[in-house]
Design a protein around this nucleic acid. Structure first.
Lengths: 205, 205, 205, 205
DNA sequence: CTTTAATCGAGACGGTACGTCTGGTCTTGTT
DNA sequence: AACAAGACCAGACGTACCGTCTCGATTAAAG
């Protein structure tokens, strides 16, 4: 990888600094949101010089995304069952549970920051969204094969609906709870499962 | 109204300034997003003194929300037809069409700003969301009465799903197009219309 | 006078306002000096509208000078004795006593303000200094006639020395006390009274 | 000195900036007095960022005093003669000559600023007045020893009278000229030199 | 007994400067 | 090289007053 050998010579980067910075960034994002999430503040809180942070992250957003990944990583392990629907629901509710606390606030920060800085959403998409989707997409594809889901269902599209509702609540500072998550899941699922008669045709008429 | 007599005395506020400020704010939000949306910049662009802006809006977010309302107001007129479903779809697609351009960018700005400033989402909810929902909610209630929608459908919840997907795309800078809008609408609708057999029960099993 | 008929018609100016403004101005100058002496503050404290103050005084300095005059006026009555020197000393010490408190602070304000605004020192000179000097100058002239003072003494110059020392102490925030005042008076007097042999000639040699 | 090692680390302060700021401050004070002497203006004129100025001087007055010192420093060299009186007169007239131009205006600015800000007069006293007095006080003490001045003369007090008159003229915007300076000096001197008979006793009587 | 004309309170308005905060860059010496 | 420390430029923040202006509401004397 190009990443493995960026610096062969000179003093190596301190792993200790890395941890201190990510920790401080995470705390600040959780406590005060974007407003308090300032390179200056991260530096002060972590005890690492400002220069060091700038050297490692080009933008505030990149640091935020890395902090989020650092916090969420290794949170997920899922033991698959026979039912793809059940597995998906478990994964979805797990995510909602996670986002109820600090992590939801941080995710919202990233989305907000992304509005002014395209590279942030790039980093978020590539660094988190896509990897995180591998598992649920896999479940969906499995379900399509077993017939639990309709064949014409677009897995990406399903994810979009499921999480669109979540993002909206996060940004509007409305609470996420499991009952609500189940309701969202149920409604979306209804549109994904095989049914005797297609409803949408009638409507378009 | 209680609003008509807030200040009987003193020099009245200039309506000209009001327009100039809202216009400038709108343009800046559309062109540069939150980053360029600075009171200083609004002042410079509108030719109105900074103090005058501060006098009228307590926060940047409040100004953003007002700009958005000012721009969107009187965009909507809907001639109802016999079908509640068709009316709702028309309204939804109309909104999507509107948000494809500048207005989408501005709405995203408001959501982003709202992350750091709770009053902004308050202003957005009270000043825009709730009033704007009156019409679609009315359509939904009508549809429930006529049996086009299932009786146990929560209109608020339906709106949440429909627009959650939209907000998510706006924030992730993904394009809104009508085909996509129709697909969202179809899927959500499937979960709202009467069906021979309830799907979700089977699934939860 | 040109002053008696500036406005024959219309609503006459309120004497009550005049008093309230001068009072408030005086208090502010005494309490906070020039820094707190703001038209806004005078307005707030006096309860009189800002416009009204601007209508009556063209500059801040003019108001300050008027306040000082208003406060000092009618403080002085002097019953002359046989000795011009004694009368002058009495007047001088009386002035020092007066300037020990608030009035000294206010006088310093006027001098300070005058630095940035020439009209203020004009107003001070014409409105206070010159009238206030009439009495001491009269005493000095009397003393010259009686031979208590040397014939070649310039009364204005004597006043300058006596009060230069006072102004200096006021501006450098050093205390004025009567012992000091007496010392100043004695030293200056030595240079004004007839003496057997002229000292200064020897010195210049 | 404790001053030599206040900050060993970090980027050292730019001497170039220091000079540019002091120069600009001096020019502004001379040209427009306190009114135009604004941190903003100093920054604009010197080309140095506002923050840099704030970092180095806590108050406007402190900067003014430093500017004055910077301008006056190394103006004075005096070659002592046999006569203490002559030396003192030379020093006094030298100072008056210096204060006739820009420097007088600047000194007045400092006194004026000092009225609202005690730290300014503190800085002025400690940073300029006291050091500048060393030489004349020395002359006076010498003169007392040699009998040119009376033994009971207080040197500080003499200086006070000499310069009180100067300050007064500066603040009242009256011109300083050498003839006047000589007259002040003569009069004050008369009170300091040995005389056949004490005048003040007669007066108090 | 109306005009008439100035005063008064209230507050909007365009400015200017304040002092603070953060961003990003740079220049030191130290590790 | 990386790192800590901190100077530096740039620019927006929100506040405080400035002096001017527009209102409507008083208030006396003149018509």
């Amino acid at each position: 990888m190009g990443e493995t050998k960026p610096a062969r010579t000179g003093r190596p980067r301190s792993e200790f600094c890395q941890q201190a910075i990510l920790r401080a960034a995470l705390d600040l994002l959780a406590e005060e949101g974007l407003a308090g999430f300032t390179i200056e503040a991260v530096s002060a809180r972590s005890g690492v010089a400002r220069t060091t942070i700038y050297r490692r992250w080009l933008t505030r957003g990149a640091l935020a995304v890395d902090s989020f990944r650092h916090a969420v990583s290794a949170e997920f392990t899922l033991s698959p069952t026979a039912s793809a629907v059940a597995d998906l629901r478990t994964a979805y509710l797990g995510m909602i549970r996670l986002l109820q606390g600090q992590h939801g606030r941080i995710l919202a920060s990233i989305l907000a920051e992304g509005h002014s800085d395209p590279t942030t959403i790039g980093a978020f998409t590539d660094g988190y969204l896509i990897p995180a989707r591998v598992l649920p997409l896999h479940i969906l594809h499995r379900g399509i094969k077993t017939g639990e889901f309709r064949a014409d269902v677009d897995p990406q599209f399903v994810m979009e609906l499921l999480f669109g509702a979540v993002y909206r609540r996060l940004l509007l500072r409305q609470p996420l709870d499991e009952a609500w998550g189940n309701a969202v899941f149920d409604l979306v699922l209804t549109g994904c499962t095989p049914q005797p008669q297609q409803a949408s045709q009638t409507m378009a008429a």
